[in-house]
Design a binder for these strands. Structure first.
Length: 508
RNA sequence: GGCCCGUUGGUCAAGGGGUUAAGACGCAUCCCUUUCACGGAUGAAUCACGAGUUCGAUUCUCGUACGGGCUACCA
């Protein structure tokens, strides 16, 4: 049954938007799997039924699809290790928990939520603000370790609500080797008796992750650093249940920090930059949180940026294609320290990707951006030329709306302040002459246009600079855009003349 | 509070006993460009602090400080 094939998994709980850190975990899983010709699995961790959020699961897969990080096995792709949704695996877990009880590594606990609250309140001191259900406390609680066997049997038989807790050893050192951090040690004396199986029969993450990683033959397990403190529980579970030699290799990824510590789903919209891969609408509040996709990011750039957030190949190279990442990524070169997310740098990555993309590659996305602003761009040939001309000044795909619009529709407003104060009779004459000259033009290209333009300017005793800016405003509406003669070329003879005439009429 | 993880410029970071301590983002100035960008150039770090090991520590060890995470019948 066991193979040597690399099998990794991303195990999200479908409770809301998929944020940066989640996508990066997916990415590292994906890259690792591809590099080792292994299998990438997505397993849905939906054991907490109270946190079910409709649509969240589908949303996650949409994000993965957009990012180009689709799994080989999952609820969508299927596979031989299913079901891939833990809620559908519910019957599998109980036997492992019971086995642990039978082996003396776990016990039944009958404490009610109220009793647990009371315990926490009673034992709370300044020295110990959050008392745990651990070896010091379990002797005072209602569980199969403290209750007489007959009573335990009675409670069990009568179906009294009960959980199964791991019985942490009194004083053992649990250690394992993390692929990023090296050897990590914990003393079991300070780890609490985590619940393994909940009263509703569902496993907690702790039991589920171990059982499913075993059942799905996971060879390498990557997750966020926030899981490090509970790693000893998982290591012990592996030891008790399946043998430590079968345990996957762990890598605890450094956290991606926001301005105030760990990025959280809750604060999704409050940072001034996106944290989710794609737009997420909370089904309860109907609140929309903007995603990187909708903000105007290219998936290639998004992935590239995420890969470099915590990893680099040591050469200084920053722009990587997905294939390059697959080839060069290594878990050993992942940083151990958390990284503060820098939105400016993220935009730089996107800019780089836009600049080096062929117009045809950007065409559909740019079309969508323009369509959203009701700007028609049906002519692909024209659109491609426009994209080529303006892409270097677009950091986000949405920037194309401003940078490309005037090629398709005449400006609605003009920066009059840049023209009017310096307008005079000779400029007026110059542009009427330009119109005549353009109307007679047989060839229509940038060099000839520029040549004629400057020659006429000289004949009118005008410096080119005096009339270049007004000309730009006439065509574009503002002080921006590519070289003005390139714009006129693409606009075409009729439209260029039309815009000059129109602007001249506005000046009257 | 306890436990765990971290700490090289504002941010991402290379380097892991002897270096002028890379590079990128951002910022500033300049060049190019009679718009805006692109491109190019230049500028900015006593490697958190204190001990120790050493001929020599940014690099190794230990403390301290600071930052972060965890401390639920959530993941």
């Amino acid at each position: 049954m066991h193979t040597n094939k690399v099998r990794v998994r991303f195990a999200p709980s479908p409770t809301g938007g998929l944020h940066l850190g989640g996508v990066r975990t997916v990415l590292y899983n994906y890259l690792f799997a591809r590099q080792h010709k292994g299998v990438f699995i997505v397993r849905i961790e939906d054991t907490d039924q109270s946190r079910f959020v409709p649509g969240a699961e589908e949303y996650i897969f949409n994000c993965l699809k957009w990012a180009g990080l689709e799994p080989d096995e999952s609820v969508v792709q299927g596979g031989k290790y299913g079901p891939y949704r833990q809620s559908e695996r519910k019957p599998l877990y109980r036997k492992y928990a019971e086995q642990l009880v039978a082996d003396g590594h776990a016990y039944y606990a009958f404490d009610t939520p109220e009793e647990l609250d009371k315990m926490r309140a009673d034992f709370k001191t300044e020295q110990n603000p959050s008392p745990q259900y651990d070896q010091h406390i379990r002797g005072r609680m209602r569980n199969s370790l403290t209750l007489p066997p007959e009573e335990v049997k009675h409670l069990l038989d009568s179906g009294a609500p009960c959980v199964i807790r791991i019985k942490m050893p009194a004083d053992e050192v649990v250690s394992f080797t993390d692929m990023i951090r090296g050897e990590v040690n914990f003393n079991t004396s300070v780890v609490d008796d985590k619940v393994l199986l909940k009263a509703d029969g569902m496993p907690t993450y702790h039991l589920a992750v171990v059982a499913d990683d075993y059942l799905m033959e996971i060879t390498h397990a990557f997750r966020g650093e926030e899981w490090l403190p509970s790693a000893p529980v998982h290591v012990l579970l592996w030891k008790y249940l399946f043998g430590i030699d079968k345990m996957p290799q762990w890598a605890h990824l450094p956290l991606i920090l926001g301005p105030n510590g760990k990025l959280s789903k809750r604060d999704g919209a409050k940072y001034g930059f996106p944290v989710f891969a794609m737009n997420w609408t909370d089904p309860k509040t109907n609140e929309l949180t903007e995603g990187f996709k909708e903000k105007g990011f290219l998936p290639e750039a998004f992935i590239n940026m995420l890969a470099l957030l915590g990893w680099n190949d040591g050469t200084g190279q920053e722009i990587f294609t997905k294939d390059e990442l697959i080839e060069k990524f290594s878990m050993e070169r992942v940083h151990s320290g958390g990284a503060k997310f820098d939105y400016e740098k993220a935009k730089w990555f996107n800019h780089e990707w836009i600049k080096q993309s062929e117009p045809a590659k950007l065409r559909q996305q740019v079309k969508q951006v323009l369509a959203a602003k009701n700007i028609p761009a049906a002519d692909d040939l024209l659109l491609d030329k426009v994209i080529l001309l303006v892409k270097e000044r677009c950091h986000l795909l949405t920037d194309f709306a401003e940078q490309a619009a005037f090629f398709f529709v005449a400006p609605e407003t003009y920066d009059m302040d840049a023209v009017k104060p310096k307008w005079n009779e000779s400029k007026q004459l110059f542009f009427t002459e330009i119109i005549r000259n353009f109307e007679l033009a047989i060839v229509w290209n940038a060099p000839d246009l520029e040549h004629n333009f400057k020659e006429i300017a000289a004949a009118n005793h005008l410096k080119p600079g005096e009339v270049l800016l007004p000309f730009r405003i006439m065509l574009v509406g503002g002080k921006f855009g590519p070289h003005v003669f390139d714009i006129a070329t693409l606009l075409g003879k009729q439209e260029t003349i039309r815009r000059i005439k129109h602007f001249l009429s506005l000046l009257q």
